[in-house]
């Protein structure tokens, strides 16, 4: 069964997520002996495109003339055209902002059932049966796709990238879609360059209301700095304006799955855990030994974050110096 994977680019570059997607697509294709075609939209250099081959794409379609500002209708039609060209029965995309924007439109256009936020390979591909999280991580469900084709959106940091050492044939792709389909007028862009995105981070240091005041974030930022971690926070912290909204993690904020999530002064409410419970390792520091965060954590310290943070920084520095 051939698989199409849409690999978004960020200013002409791919990132780990892109290779997770190709690896996942390649895993599905491998279940049936099919091949993987990657679709890139916008201007991406040949060298960058060819990196997709190392993770299992045998072909890369580069729709380089399509403008890079996201227009949901235009992108939907471009991806639909690539599905038609390749005859793929499965489409793999990321469960991120753009995936959430486009995948549902494609589901209607292609009459293809959508399973969003999958974290593992399907248990069967004909029909597609795949597990996904529901109730914000409180349960898992097995979803069966009832249509001929399927769209699967993959959660970030949930699928191990696998290098295959292969190479891909790169082909310019003209989707034949009229640019006037695009109706989004982008009036202004505000972007912080060079900042590690919370959703991309492998390590995350997070603070809750137990940090007591926005003035106490210094040590937390220092710890993040020496670890190369991103900073996050609980909802009340961002609601109070102690920290920027992009840092709010949880059910109603960002949902992340880093290798390490360190929670300082966070009680571990169910809505907070919904955004962080997929982390591979959770460390909690809380003065209350009964705080629910300890039920979700792998390692815990009952103690004052203001005392533990400086010691942790010192110990990590000491360990690094060895």
């Amino acid at each position: 069964m051939s698989v199409l994977v849409y690999t978004e680019n960020w200013d002409g570059r791919f990132k780990k997520l892109s290779y997770e997607l190709v690896s996942y697509a390649s895993g599905i294709a491998g279940m049936t002996g099919g091949s993987v075609t990657a679709l890139s939209i916008g201007n991406v250099g040949r060298d960058e495109l060819s990196t997709l081959g190392s993770y299992g794409a045998t072909n890369v379609l580069s729709a380089e003339t399509v403008p890079s500002g996201l227009d949901n209708q235009l992108y939907t039609q471009v991806i639909a055209a690539a599905m038609e060209k390749t005859g793929a029965k499965v489409l793999v995309m990321a469960n991120n902002n753009s995936g959430k924007a486009i995948a549902p439109r494609l589901s209607v256009r292609l009459k293809a059932g959508l399973a969003s936020g999958v974290t593992a390979l399907p248990e069967s591909v004909d029909p597609v049966i795949v597990q996904k999280k529901v109730f914000s991580g409180k349960a898992y469900a097995k979803v069966k796709i009832l249509s001929d084709s399927a769209i699967l959106t993959l959660s970030q940091n949930s699928f191990e990238i696998r290098e295959t050492g292969g190479s891909a044939a790169i082909e310019a792709f003209d989707p034949g879609v009229d640019a006037s389909v695009a109706k989004t007028n982008i009036r202004d862009v505000q972007k912080q360059e060079g900042k590690l995105l919370l959703t991309d981070a492998e390590l995350v240091v997070s603070g809750g209301r137990g940090m007591k005041s926005p003035d106490n974030w210094g040590p937390l930022e220092e710890l993040a700095g020496i670890l190369g971690a991103a900073t996050a926070c609980s909802r009340p912290v961002s609601d109070e304006g102690w920290r920027p909204h992009e840092e709010h993690t949880g059910q109603t904020g960002k949902i992340i799955a880093p290798n390490l999530y360190m929670a300082f002064g966070i009680s571990g409410a169910i809505q907070h855990l919904a955004g962080v419970s997929a982390s591979k390792c959770i460390v909690a520091v809380n003065t209350d030994k009964d705080a629910p965060i300890f039920e979700a954590a792998d390692y815990g310290i009952v103690g004052d974050a203001h005392k533990v943070l400086p010691e942790l920084i010192a110990e990590i520095k000491a360990a690094r110096a060895q």
């Binding site: 959508l114 399973a115 049966i129 898992y140 469900a141 097995k142």
Partner: peptide, 10 residues
């Protein structure tokens, strides 16, 4: 286009 077959707790 889709149906749930089964549910499980983590």
């Amino acid at each position: 286009l889709t149906g749930y077959l089964e549910f499980a707790l983590p």
